[in-house]
Design a protein around this nucleic acid. Structure first.
Length: 646
RNA sequence: GCGCCCAUAGCUCAGCUGGAUAGAGCGUUAGCCUCCGGAGCUAAAGGUCGCAGGUUCGAAUCCUGCUGGGCGCACCA
């Protein structure tokens, strides 16, 4: 907060000053933290940039800018250094006291309405670590958006009428010859999703051996889409049971949703028919009378620069047999998200330990359902392999004349999670020599090869609980504490890599609790908490209340080690903004790691509870408290809980 | 063939819209528990930022061309 005020103020002042002194307008002023602490707290290479246009020496320009520059509150001095940098130094005491009051204060929830869609797992088998990356990215993004004041609606789209569900239905009906009641009984077992994991891969290999059997799939899909009859009922039972498992799995990670929109409802409510009318009216989609796509309705994309250079830029939305493609349905659904389709769903509650709604097509809405849809910004968290499709959807809106909505259709893309050859081999995957030489090998749902989300969490929890018990602290709550640490480890692991990086999943790395890991951050925060708990127990006043801080005479006593903690803490909100705008959440994990490292170092160097001098003890305690508040709030944004002990 | 992404220390990765001496973790080596928690701390070693050009006061960062790897480019979802 305080830092933002200072940078905003300085930016304005400098812009005005450059204009006044040199008659030259500048669009932006770069304000960055200098590489070394002794260079000050903020710096700008503004004079270097101006040197060229003004044809004057950088240092000379810097001098005239600095001379008599009006400084914002808490900025104590400005100086010219290096090649012509303008360096600002803060009033450490004043800044710290002011910052302490507003550490990680969230914005008021008055921002734009946003729909974030994530998770979207096919309801036919257990969630795996690839789905985990999606869900953790999506959930963390949602938390950050809310913190920034956006009003967010979280959706988890359920493709309950797709091929993947159909394949499991086929397996139950044709391979295993199970009755509806038998399947219904199976869904009652605790890990029905694991059961289907195997059923699905069994079906996939059956298709490979008996290509004719794919006819079953076609028939099944057709019956499912009609929504009538036993096959459709069976599909609904399976999908629903699996979705319940996925909800449970994600809840272990603290991930929740507001709405589960179902593909079957979109079909039953004929969203596509309406979208089709709009697309035809606007001319965005046309009927091909001849050529390769004869008999199809296509969206013409060859004109747009985005799709320039493609051999076959046109996208088929309706096949020659009259059925709609996935892309077509997706455009219709995207229109609904923006409130541009003049029809909508019914809603009812979905059984979950929190308030969760699902769409319906037959019931009238239950009372109490919030208003879903109609957002200003729509963010779809989907892996990079669907980038092309997302582009087409965006272009669809554009061609319908919804330019603003096209602009606000954001694809949060990220790279896949693969397996290291070692991990793949440990899972029983056959590794060819060629594979072994690779950095990673892809998971395969069809082959049933992958690391299941619940299995990974189980392994992490087991290890974390052991560590808690070994440590001897909080053994009575070892299970709950271990669970929190495990989830923290997992979420951190999924967030710390840049989104464009393929994660080659390795058990040893994922289970690491040292160094660049969730438990390291949590541990450092727990220590800070412990200090204050111990001080309270021993009746030592930490003097960190607002009143006490007001009386603080910090100005001279805040040394470099303390100041770095405060300064880094103050920089976090800007990082969160940058992370959200750039869809790069690893910025936050990175900053929190640096902060935790700084604190751990500080912690070893400066005893707090045992410091005899009151003023010095207070300064140290204030820094530890700034750290604690920053970490608790920052980790909360990452969905990582901090226990009292560990 | 076209498009997107990746290439930085032995390994896994940071490096903020071009800025001051390229940083972490793991691993390796050497230290640190009479002192608030060792899931920790201190220090050392480790770099042709894939290659070649270009842009400029300044390039790991921007542009062009290569090389190597990954992923897309269906009347599948």
């Amino acid at each position: 907060m305080i830092l933002e005020q200072i940078t905003d103020h300085l930016t304005e002042t400098l812009k005005n000053r450059v204009l006044a002194l040199f008659g030259h307008p500048v669009e932006r002023v770069i304000l960055q933290t200098p590489p070394k602490l002794n260079m000050g707290d903020l710096a700008t290479p503004l004079a270097l940039e101006l040197a060229k246009v003004l044809k004057r020496k950088p240092r000379e320009i810097a001098e005239s800018l600095a001379n008599g520059l009006e400084l914002p509150m808490f900025v104590a001095s400005v100086s010219v250094e290096g090649a012509g940098y303008l360096n600002f130094r803060f009033d450490r005491g004043g800044f710290t006291a002011a910052h302490m009051r507003t550490v990680m204060q969230p914005q008021a929830a008055a921002g734009q309405r946003v729909i974030v869609e994530h998770t979207n797992i096919n309801p036919n088998k257990a969630a795996h670590i690839g789905h985990l990356r999606n869900a953790v990215l999506g959930d963390t993004y949602v938390r950050c958006m809310k913190w920034l004041g956006y009003r967010v609606e979280t959706q988890n789209y359920i493709d309950d009428t797709g091929v993947q569900v159909a394949d499991v239905v086929v397996a139950f009906q044709h391979l295993d010859e199970k009755s509806i009641d038998e399947v219904r009984a199976l869904t009652q077992q605790p890990k029905f999703d694991y059961y289907c994991w195997d059923v699905y891969s069994r079906m996939a290999s059956y298709y490979n051996e008996h290509p004719d059997s794919k006819e079953w799939r076609r028939e099944t899909l057709h019956r499912m889409e009609s929504g009538e009859g036993e096959t459709a009922e069976l599909a609904a039972i399976i999908a629903r049971a699996i979705v319940r498992r996925h909800i449970e799995t994600m809840l272990r990670l603290g991930i929740t949703y507001d709405l589960l929109p179902k593909e079957s409802d979109i079909i039953a409510l004929h969203f596509w028919d309406r979208a089709f009318e709009l697309l035809k009216q606007s001319g965005a989609v046309i009927y091909e009378h001849e050529g390769k796509h004869k008999g199809c309705w296509v969206m013409k994309l060859e004109g747009s620069e985005e799709f320039a250079g493609m051999d076959e830029p046109d996208k088929i939305l309706v096949r020659s047999n009259g059925t709609v493609t996935y892309t077509g349905k997706d455009i219709a659904y995207q229109l609904w998200k923006f409130g541009l389709l003049d029809r909508t769903f019914g809603y009812r509650k979905f059984p979950a330990p929190y308030t969760l709604w699902e769409t319906t097509h037959d019931d009238p809405s239950q009372s109490g359902a919030p208003k879903f849809g109609g957002a200003e910004i729509v963010v779809n968290v989907i892996d990079v392999r669907q980038a092309y499709l997302q582009k087409v959807v965006k272009q669809g809106l554009h061609q319908l004349g919804h330019r603003k909505e096209a602009e606000n259709s954001i694809h949060f893309s990220y790279e896949m999670v693969a397996l290291t050859p070692e991990t793949a081999s440990a899972l029983g995957m056959e590794i060819t020599e060629e594979d072994a030489a690779k950095a990673y090998v892809e998971m395969s749902g069809r082959k049933g090869l992958g690391v299941k989300a619940d299995d990974l969490m189980d392994a992490l929890e087991k290890k974390a609980i052991e560590r808690v018990v070994e440590g001897g602290r909080g053994a009575e709550d070892a299970e709950e504490i271990g669970r929190q640490i495990a989830i923290g480890a997992l979420r951190y692991f999924m967030l710390k890599y840049g989104r464009n990086k393929v994660i080659a999943f390795d058990f040893n790395e994922a289970l690491a609790f040292e160094g660049d890991s969730g438990p390291y951050l949590v541990n450092s925060t727990v220590r800070a908490k412990s200090i204050f708990r111990k001080m309270a127990e021993e009746g030592i006043d930490a003097m960190i209340s607002d009143d006490a801080v007001d009386r603080l005479t910090l100005s001279e006593g805040i040394n470099d080690d303390m100041w770095e903690l405060v300064r880094m803490s103050a920089g976090l909100p800007a990082s969160i903004r940058r992370a959200v705008d750039g869809l790069e959440l690893s910025i936050i994990t990175h900053d929190l790691l640096e902060l935790a490292q700084k604190f751990n170092s500080f912690y070893h160097k400066y005893p707090i509870k045992n410091e005899k001098d009151d003023a010095e003890r207070q300064r140290r305690a204030v820094c530890a408290e700034v750290f604690r508040r920053t970490m608790v709030a920052g980790l909360e944004l990452l969905g990582i809980a901090v226990p009292e002990r560990m």
